[in-house]
Simulated assay, not measured.
Amino acid sequence: MIDYISSHIFIIALTFFIAGFVKGVAGMGLPTVAIAILSAIMSPVSAASLLIIPSFVTNCWQLFTGSNFLALIRRLWVMMLGILVGTLAGTWLLTSANTIYASVGLGSALIVYAVHGLFAKPLSVPARLERLLSPVIGLTTGLINGGTGIFTLPAVPYIQALGLSKDDLIQALGLSFTVSTIALAMGLARGGAFHLGNITLSALAIIPALLGMWVGTRVRERISLTTFRRWFFILIAILGLELAIHPFFH
């Protein structure tokens, strides 16, 4: 039993180190990698609950790296409200007894995310459409976040299409990720899935996640980011496929 617990904790620590490394290199991907790997050894809801605290800490770090926090809040608050509402509405899937739907939904979301990252071309959103699209994008992102624990689509390509400066883009993504993490925590807690044991392990996961981020930022300068992102998305697609078909062969 002790050996099982030790190996379980080791796998969790290694997962968050790898996820932190990816975020350090690519600027995103910690929750996506963490929940993709952990869902292979535990239920999607347990995996989602473990990523809450390390995701929150790393995203807050990203959020407060820039100087335009208030300006971005004023511009994106409707989208953030949509994320909150959508996530709270969508967490019933993660916290429901039917883990098959949650696993298939998570796997499908990972596949879509990977395909978009591999093949989609950058978009551009005209300023006149932003007020109309922001609540729709926020609500859709929230529903996907609540149902799968993945909060990158469609928020990331949408924010990237707003024509923000590099620093504002990083900060806006940090804002979206932070709101998504808080909303997911609220949804999981409401569904009774955010237990003390999960909170403790989630807090401990901060250490390997931050260490992985530090290593990733060091490595970023020495490798081709394009090649790294390509193999990252291929790996995510493989993990997503495994999660989507896994319930039907067991």
Rank of each mutant, 00 (worst) to 15 (best):
G142L: 04
A193H: 07
L38M: 14
I53S: 01
V115N: 02
P31D: 06
I18Y: 05
F119C: 13
G20V: 09
I12L: 15
L51F: 12
I144H: 03
L76E: 04
G107T: 05
L88D: 03
A89I: 13
E221D: 14
T87A: 03
F17W: 08
L184T: 10
N59L: 04
P135G: 14
Q62K: 08
R131S: 15
Y101R: 01
L72V: 04
L30Q: 06
E221C: 08
I238E: 08
Y113S: 05
H250L: 14
T65K: 13
R128L: 11
E130N: 11
I199Y: 03
L30A: 11
A205R: 00
G240I: 04
L106W: 01
I9T: 09
G20P: 07
A205G: 10
V45H: 05
F151T: 01
M28L: 15
S67E: 14
T65N: 13
L204R: 08
A97M: 10
T141C: 11
L173Y: 04
S6G: 06
G163N: 09
G191K: 04
I245R: 09
S55V: 07
G216I: 02
L153K: 01
A189I: 10
G149F: 01
G197L: 05
T227D: 08
A48H: 04
P126K: 14
R74S: 13
A120D: 11
F64N: 10
F151N: 08
I35W: 00
A203V: 13
A109C: 10
L132M: 14
F177L: 15
F16I: 11
L118F: 06
G146W: 00
D168E: 15
T148E: 02
G174S: 02
L153F: 12
I236H: 06
I37G: 01
F64V: 12
L88I: 12
K166L: 12
Q62S: 08
S180Q: 00
T140F: 10
T87L: 02
W231D: 08
S202R: 01
A109E: 00
T181G: 08
I37W: 03
G147P: 00
L225W: 10
T181D: 03
P247T: 06
A47M: 09
